[in-house]
Write a protein that binds this DNA or RNA. Structure first.
Lengths: 140, 140
DNA sequence: TTTGGTGCAAACTCTTTGCAGGGTC
DNA sequence: GACCCTGCAAAGAGTTTGCACCAAA
């Protein structure tokens, strides 16, 4: 049952296990790729017709504060959300709203190594994210 | 006169040269670092007390469409603007709203070289921007 | 039973739009 | 003079908040 890991996540973060939270996290983790709050609401309308948008926003904020999900931005766009799995970057379409994850251990390693040698004066790096902008050549 | 290059920019882009546009571009280019529309308005209130926020938004949009400025995002924040000079990345403070440019030709080269060899399936890269998150250790 | 979550609606913030008047070329 | 730009105010989109009710532990 896929719910097991969702429930575990909630418990591990001292959050009460509610149907709403399970449903929201499920959408982000398994169904929709980088959804906006609106998009999540759209999905939930089918299975949980009366989860309010307000609850979705509050829940997303709760998840974000606990580090269960990330927020991501596009350059001409609202907020979107992202289930954290492991360090990854994002591919942004220059033509549409599409955003995909991009995982590349080797690239991470190269960048990490680079910033072990190169120091940015007056700045301590905590994290680096690449925004890779371009065109998707497959259909979706 | 610093205005010369601003006026040239406007003319080169087939934009009418108005005091508002000069003032707005001047703020972005020379005075304030990555301002928001609100911040720009704040500055202009001193020298041009009756430039309306609406005009600022329209002007920024015009500049953006002409490629004169960039838009940038922070993770929990509104839009901010950036005078384009050359390819650069951004340092984001994890503690405040501060954003600084980060220019690093060598890093660009390394990344470019990397993606000459590594191809992302189904995706053609047009541009890559790094979001470097961390702490500023100098005061400002 | 206690604590915290949900739903709803109203409020807020940032941004966009429409239109009449004014400035630039 | 033609065209485009500006200012103002109203509208819009996405998000947040307050509060009474309800569910989870």
């Amino acid at each position: 049952m896929a719910n097991k890991s969702i429930i575990k996540t909630l418990i591990d973060n001292n959050l009460k296990v509610t149907p709403q939270r399970i449903a929201i996290l499920e959408v982000i983790r398994t169904i929709e790729n980088h959804p906006s709050a609106e998009k999540i609401s759209e999905y939930l309308r089918l299975t949980h017709p009366n989860i309010s948008l307000g609850t979705i926003y509050k829940t997303l904020d709760t998840f974000f504060k606990k580090g269960i999900i990330h927020k991501i931005h596009n350059d001409n766009d609202f907020l979107r959300y992202d289930a954290i799995t492991k360090k990854h970057h994002h591919l942004y379409s220059s033509e549409s709203e599409r955003i995909e994850d991009y995982v590349d251990e080797k690239l991470n390693e190269i960048i990490e190594k680079y910033f072990e040698i190169i120091v940015i004066p007056g700045f301590t790096i905590e994290d680096i994210k690449l925004q890779i902008i371009g065109k998707f050549t497959d259909k979706k």
